[in-house]
Each structure stands twice: as structure tokens, then as C-alpha cells.
Amino acid sequence: MNSGPSLLSLLAACLYAGIVATCLLAWRAARPANVPPWHRRAWIALALLFVALALLRFFALEEGFRDLIREAMRQDGSYSNRRRMQEIAAAIAISAIAIAAGIFAFRQRRGPWLRGRRNRAVSAASVAGAALMALLGLRLISLHAIDALLYGPLKLNWFADIGASLLVAGAALYYTWRVRSAR
């Protein structure tokens, strides 16, 4: 097991804590305003997601979870077959991500979510939050081919994680500004 979080994990936890603050700011701005209730629910859900991500990073739970899975697989003798299980889990995860993205895109096209700047900000932040959950799932599966993409020379893990996180923060700040300027 790991002894604790790395410096990068601590920095990520601090980034996530800042994003929790921006989500709560947006939630607070939406409370007294005349906005759809789903806005408030989305901002509080995103704040909770980033609290969970910060705790995962701060306490090195993601790495610990992977270590527990590996140890359990070693004890029951299935560790030598882990690649096959990871391939199946990755195929299921990627299929679920693709289906969820397709359903979301279809619903966005037909719904009121893309009408209005505030709706777009909440939708963009929600998509970024979903992308972070998908990224977390792929990191937990830890299939060699996926790891090579995420942690390889391009560091796609960092770009996706930081990019989606900053998108949520930016959308929250923009949303707060739009709601407050409408009063």
C-alpha cells in the first residue's frame, strides 16, 4: 500500500477544493434567483463530486483501491488473468460512456438545456463532471493500453483532469456572473 499522497495529488486536491468553492458560489447565486431547480441540483452535485475527488486524492484512495484489488486477485489466484478482466471492464466502461454521451447529446438537442447562457454553463459543467467520472473509471480499470494513453508522453490524464476541472470552475464563475448581473 502507498504511504500517502504525492505532491501532485496534494496539488490536485487543492485544485478540487477551489472548484468546490466555485460550484458552491454558483449554487448560492442560483438559490434566490429565478432559475430552474436543476441548476441548483447540478451545482451541488458537482460540488459533491469535487469533494469526493479531493478526498480520493488527499487520502490516496484511488491508489489504495487499486492495490486492494490487486491483492484480492493475488489471493484468489486470478491475478494472472487480470488483463482479460481489465479488457472486459474497459469494454463495458467505454461502451457505457459512449451510450451515456449519445443519450445526453440526443436529450440536449431536443431539450431546453442549450437555450440560454446559464443553461449552457450548467450543461458544460455537467459534461465536464461526467468526463471526470469516466476518467476516474478508466484509471481504476488500469488496463495497460489505456494507461499508455493516459500516462504516456502526452500525459492525457493531466490534460483531461485539469481541463475538465477548469471547465467546471470557469462555467461556475461565468454562471455566477450571469445570474448576478441579471438581478
Rank of each mutant, 00 (worst) to 15 (best):
M85L: 14
I94S: 13
A72D: 08
F104E: 07
S80T: 10
N2S: 11
A90F: 08
M85K: 08
A172S: 15
S9C: 00
R82V: 14
V51S: 05
F159L: 15
R41I: 08
G129V: 04
S3V: 09
R74C: 00
E63N: 00
L166S: 04
M85R: 11
R40G: 09
R70K: 11
L68T: 07
G18T: 04
A145M: 04
A100F: 11
R178K: 09
L55Q: 02
W43H: 08
S9R: 03
S6Q: 06
A160S: 13
E87F: 02
R70A: 15
Q75L: 15
V127D: 01
E62I: 00
R183C: 07
D76T: 02
A182S: 15
I94A: 13
L143D: 03
C14E: 08
R28F: 13
R74Q: 13
R180K: 15
P112V: 11
A98P: 02
A182E: 15
I44V: 15
A145V: 10
R139L: 09
E71C: 01
D67A: 15
R28C: 08
D76E: 12
L46G: 06
A128E: 04
N81L: 12
L136Y: 11
G163E: 05
R28E: 10
M133C: 12
A134K: 02
W38G: 03
R66I: 14
I103R: 10
S3L: 14
I146S: 04
L138S: 07
I44Y: 00
A45D: 01
L46Q: 08
L114A: 09
G170W: 09
A121N: 08
S6D: 04
F104L: 14
R139C: 13
G77N: 05
W27R: 13
R82K: 12
D147H: 06
A172G: 15
A172N: 03
I99E: 01
Q86V: 08
R178N: 01
G64D: 02
V51F: 05
A21L: 14
L132M: 12
N157V: 02
A121V: 02
A101S: 14
